[in-house]
Design a protein around this nucleic acid. Structure first.
Length: 779
DNA sequence: TAATGAACATTTTTT
DNA sequence: ATGTTCATTA
């Protein structure tokens, strides 16, 4: 084995020398020495430890180009794996740019999952599947598990199916099939976990379906059981590259180790300090262990940072230094000093939101002694998504445009999934899960009882549910209004199904027809809740997305894996998202609110995972700080309403860990000691603000600018033109519609602010331009 | 069967 | 506080 490795490496080296002499490689000149080494060390295992903002994608893409340019590999011989479609897209694009032509021919550059789908479709029969298997998402998965749980007579109160789904996911992350589940797991889910796992997998096989975890797991199983297949791919993928290695789980690790087992030409890129998906099965251990797994690996550290100022980097380093078990990295930069981190405490969460809103407005206008920042240049990164509400409420009232990243993805939304279920059922009438989803959506009077009858009939005859329903109708098993509706649905499905291949009608028109004739569109048109117009809008978008595909089948095939719909929102907006969603992004100015013990670091994380959990939270803090290019503002609130209860909490322990020399302590304007005093009484003086705030640089700066009114009126100046129109556009008593709060009636008008009694959301003051007349709701 | 209210839980979520 | 899910009613 050793000998093989050596000779292999030797041969590679000589090849490299030859090839490089033959072809110039000007693209290498753009790299710093470490990046260059990472791009040039082509043979054997390489671990690229790339800190935040150190140009890892540049190194990685250059490496790919260099592999091709030296003649070591063609585009089809390189396996390059990412976690997200976005990352894959970006890599493809950048390789293309380096090559000076579109990188069309890299069929094996993609996400773990998309690559596994390709492999699994080729070898499906080796795990008892047909190659046209369907991919279930979390929703289908849960419904399936619910059925099994119910059938097994478990008290699903105490043992919710959602929990079983979580357990099974973790098992799959660890590459444990039902047959090689360790004995230690026997007690999971009231001791029924292993048996249910068995049943679940069996049921999936019956349905010719897989879940996300299976995509990896089945391929690993195939590789383990069929040496010939494995060896074929080992030869095929001559060079392997892995992005975000710190986020790989055990199954992905095994998958990689199997594929790299022969030549060991594997280059893993990652940053142990940015491992924040442990709770999803990611194993930091994979990256920490790399040198043991691949003896003789070249370890290359990318430490020169091109993103942030020295203050920001120093603060980030100070925080992350609290973690043990690091591979160790120290970021440095040639950038100008810039601003220190800004730290500010507030009385409560609402004040924090108010202050940040005002600060964003001030920074936008450049009245903070810094350059002006556009709204697009600023982001608020929160630990938990529920923190976003305070900001949304505040921004809506002051009229600050914002965009939320994350939340339910387009294809996960209720109406989209319903519509998709209709399409699925039309294309494949045997899709029972889809049938169950839409039999009674819109309401057709087919409740539990009727559905059970359908189930029974179908099972007795051993046919899919649609067929069962038809038989039941013929036998008069269902009567009255429900029967008529069901007949209508079944006939419709048949009719639409026959039109699938029809040349006279495009698949887009067909989709529209399905949604209309099934009554699905009508259901939302008659719905008066505030969400309904948005849902109709989404359905329109779905139909539009169809245009990009040849036919319905093709669309359905692709959608299951492409869950990222970056709704390209136009217009300047502040970005609001979770810290997790922010990984890989950067902004000139970043706000990090909610740094309080219990919230961040999250209590739950610490309770459940102890020191390991705390360290992951600390890495999250590190990720947050390193998102900032120029200005990073951290804040905390002394009091916060948590699930409706007021709670006081201490500033985050991570605040203590910020090196003082790189932090300015600001004081909330207008409240002098007020906001701070409250925090002080809960322990702040012994903590971060060791320095008396009145002596702090931030305070002095504030005084020096005494003339400036810190509490600005954000919206008026900017929107005055619009406001004039707005003022004349509304009258007291008018019924209006608001994107977030729904329908309501105007109680009072004060300038551009309208006081509105909303039907669902209570009375709020809202800026006029966020209001439309109740009658011209979109759609 | 659909509508109502009580009980409940409530981090992060690349595919 | 709020949204969801379940069980009970009409």
């Amino acid at each position: 084995m050793n000998r093989f490795d050596e000779s292999d490496a030797f041969e590679g080296a000589s090849l490299s020398a030859r090839a490089m002499a033959a072809r110039p490689a000007p693209y290498l000149d753009d790299l710093n020495p470490e990046q260059r080494r990472a791009a040039e060390t082509l043979d054997g295992p390489v671990l690229m430890l790339a800190g935040a903002g150190t140009g890892k994608t540049k190194a990685l893409t250059t490496r790919i180009v260099h592999l091709m340019n030296t003649g070591r590999a063609g585009p089809g011989d390189i396996l390059a794996v990412t976690f997200t479609n976005k990352a894959a897209r970006e890599m493809k694009e950048r390789v293309g740019r380096l090559l000076g032509q579109p990188a069309e021919g890299m069929p094996w550059l993609g996400t773990f999952h998309s690559i596994c789908v390709k492999l699994l479709r080729r070898h499906a029969e080796l795990v008892d599947l047909k190659s046209n298997f369907t991919i279930l998402d979390a929703d289908d998965q849960l419904r399936l598990l619910k059925q099994l749980v119910q059938a097994s007579g478990i008290d699903d109160k105490r043992w919710p199916a959602r929990m079983l789904a979580g357990i099974i996911d973790q098992w799959k992350n660890r590459a444990w099939t039902p047959d090689n589940l360790p004995a230690s797991e026997g007690s999971a889910y009231d001791g029924k976990g292993p048996a249910l796992y068995h049943q679940y997998q069996a049921r999936l096989k019956e349905l010719n379906a897989v879940d996300f975890g299976d995509l990896l797991l089945h391929v690993v199983t195939i590789f383990q059981r069929h040496d010939d297949v494995l060896r074929q791919y080992q030869r095929w993928f001559r060079y392997i590259l892995v992005d975000e290695y710190q986020d790989t789980n055990v199954a992905q690790y095994l998958w990689l180790r199997l594929l790299a087992g022969g030549h060991k030409n594997i280059c893993c890129v990652g940053d142990d300090d940015q491992s924040i998906y442990g709770w999803r099965g990611a194993e930091v251990g994979n990256i920490l262990r790399f040198e043991k797994d691949f003896p003789g690996a070249a370890v290359i550290r990318l430490e020169q940072n091109y993103r942030s100022t020295p203050h920001i980097l120093a603060a980030a380093s100070g925080v992350i230094a609290g973690n043990r078990d690091r591979l160790g990295k120290e970021l440095w930069t040639e950038a100008q000093e810039g601003e220190k981190l800004r730290l500010i405490g507030h009385w409560d969460g609402e004040e924090e939101a108010r202050w940040i809103g005002e600060e964003i407005d001030a920074m936008q206008r450049g009245t903070r002694g810094m350059r002006p920042y556009s709204l697009d240049a600023m982001a608020i990164l929160v630990r938990a998504s529920h923190q976003m509400r305070a900001f949304e409420d505040r921004f809506l009232t002051i009229g600050l445009p914002y965009r939320v990243i994350g939340g339910p993805r387009f294809y996960e939304r209720l109406e989209i999934r319903d519509a998709m279920a209709y399409f699925r059922l039309v294309v494949s009438p045997a899709d029972d899960l889809a049938f169950e989803r839409i039999v009674n959506t819109p309401k057709r009077g087919l409740g539990d009882k009727a559905q059970q009858k359908i189930q029974m009939t179908a099972r007795q005859h051993g046919v899919p549910l649609v067929e069962g329903a038809r038989l039941l109708l013929d036998d008069k098993g269902i009567t009255g209004k429900a029967a008529g509706e069901l007949r209508l649905l079944i006939d419709g499905l048949g009719r639409w199904g026959r039109m699938v291949g029809d040349a006279d009608i495009s698949h887009v028109e067909l989709a529209e027809m399905i949604l209309d004739e099934s009554g699905y569109t009508g259901m939302w048109q008659n719905d008066k809740t505030p969400e309904a117009p948005g849902r109709l809008e989404n359905l329109k978008e779905l139909v539009k997305a169809l245009e990009g595909f040849e036919n319905l089948q093709g669309f359905l095939e692709h959608v299951s894996l492409i869950m990222d719909n970056e709704a390209g929102e136009e217009g300047e907006k502040v970005t609001l998202m979770t810290l997790h969603a922010a990984k890989g992004l950067e902004f000139p100015a970043v706000f990090l609110p909610g740094w309080e013990d219990g919230l961040f670091p999250s209590q739950r994380s610490m309770d459940e995972s102890g020191v390991r959990g705390l360290e992951e939270e600390r890495r999250l803090a590190y990720v947050g700080i390193t998102r900032a290019e120029e200005v990073c503002t951290i804040s905390f609130a002394g009091n916060r309403r948590v699930y409706g209860q007021w709670q006081s909490q201490m500033p985050s322990r991570f605040i203590d860990e910020l090196p003082e020399a790189h932090v300015d302590v600001l004081t909330p304007p207008g409240l002098y000691g007020g906001g701070y005093g409250a925090a002080a009484s809960s322990g702040i003086e012994s903590r971060a603000a060791e320095a008396n705030v009145y002596n702090s640089p931030g305070w002095r700066r504030l005084q020096a600018r005494g003339a400036e009114r810190p509490l600005s009126q954000p919206s008026e100046a900017r929107h005055s033109v619009i406001d004039l129109q707005a003022m004349s556009a509304h009258t007291v008593g008018e019924r209006v519609f608001h994107q977030k709060f729904g329908y309501g009636a105007i109680i009072a008008i004060e300038g551009d602010k309208l006081e509105i009694a909303f039907e669902k959301a209570g009375t709020k003051k809202v800026v006029a331009r966020f209001i439309t007349g109740a009658d011209d709701v979109p759609f």
